[in-house]
């Protein structure tokens, strides 16, 4: 198929960007979206002779595993994060989802918290900062406990696994009308809050992760649910309700500092 591509080009974070139109022909319906971009880049390299304008340089886009597990490859394609399909990442998107003669508009994730590094590549480090604020279990050294010594219900282990399938691609932020990271944070809080090992620090974790999220410039959730619709791992918005529950519980019932009045020494 022959396609017209409108791609956001921006040389670096502090330079102005613009859309550039490219024509690309003979694309197989069986190739993936990223392979199509590879072909475009190859064409740009072959066509260039000598120093060229940055719009004639290969298009920068993030990718790593190309099988939907690393979460690097987020692109906003024709008004939808990860393009016109559900439950997949951009690298899993196939060109058969488009028609011959289509115009495809490709944009980077747009959020104050995700500065553009170049073209379609954004810095999703803000998500890592949220994890650093508490998205872990502090493991102290010692012997390996027996696998069956901590009983976990099937229900909770399933829910925790579902939440843990979040790959941190940032599509929830990209699709949210408010650029909110609530689905991401809720998945990371839930996967630990549901398990006995995570429960111990749950009250502090939820508070510090939400605090970090707020400070990084993400918006507030307005229950629009674009996040759930676009999540490649189909993480449920019920996790957001759990995050709210956990947070309210921690704020209302938990004493962050144990004072004498609270029974501390």
């Amino acid at each position: 198929m022959n396609l017209t591509l409108k791609i956001w080009r921006q040389p670096s974070v502090d330079k102005k960007g613009k859309f550039e139109t490219y024509q690309i022909n003979d694309i197989s319906a069986d190739c993936s979206f990223l392979e199509m971009l590879d072909q475009l880049n190859e064409k740009l390299i072959n066509d260039s002779n000598g120093p060229v304008d940055f719009t004639k340089c290969p298009v920068s886009f993030d990718h790593d595993c190309r099988e939907g597990i690393c979460g690097m490859c987020g692109l906003y394609i024709n008004g939808r994060p990860h393009g016109p399909d559900s439950g997949i990442t951009t690298c899993q998107l196939h060109m058969r989802k488009f028609k011959d003669g289509d115009t495809i508009v490709v944009e980077p994730w747009r959020s104050k918290a995700f500065p553009i590094i170049r073209d379609l590549v954004v810095d999703r480090g803000a998500l890592d900062k949220i994890i650093q604020a508490g998205g872990y279990v502090s493991v102290n050294t010692g012997g390996i406990p027996d696998a069956n010594s901590i009983p976990i219900s099937k229900r909770n282990s399933d829910l925790a696994m579902d939440a843990a399938s979040c790959i941190g691609c940032g599509a929830c932020v990209a699709s949210c009308a408010n650029a909110s990271a609530m689905l991401f944070v809720s998945a990371k809080v839930s996967q630990l809050a549901l398990l006995p090992q995570g429960k111990i620090e749950a009250k502090e974790r939820v508070q510090s992760m939400v605090k970090e999220m707020d400070s990084l410039g993400f918006g507030n959730c307005s229950n629009t649910y674009g996040c759930e619709a676009e999540c490649p791992k189909e993480i449920s918005k019920s996790n957001i309700a759990r995050l709210n529950r956990e947070f309210i519980g921690a704020k209302v019932c938990y004493e962050n500092e144990v004072t004498r009045a609270a029974g501390g020494a």
Binding site: K6, W8, F19, Y76, N78, G79, R80, P81, V105, E107, R110, S111, K112, A113, S175, A177, N178, A179, S180, G217, F218, G219, N223, T224, Y225, G226, A229, E230
Partner: peptide, 16 residues
């Protein structure tokens, strides 16, 4: 303020 630069294509995600 959380999205100072908007998208060119309006969002087509299924939303409330």
């Amino acid at each position: 303020a959380s999205r100072p630069v908007g998208y060119n294509q309006s969002n087509k995600s299924k939303t409330a």
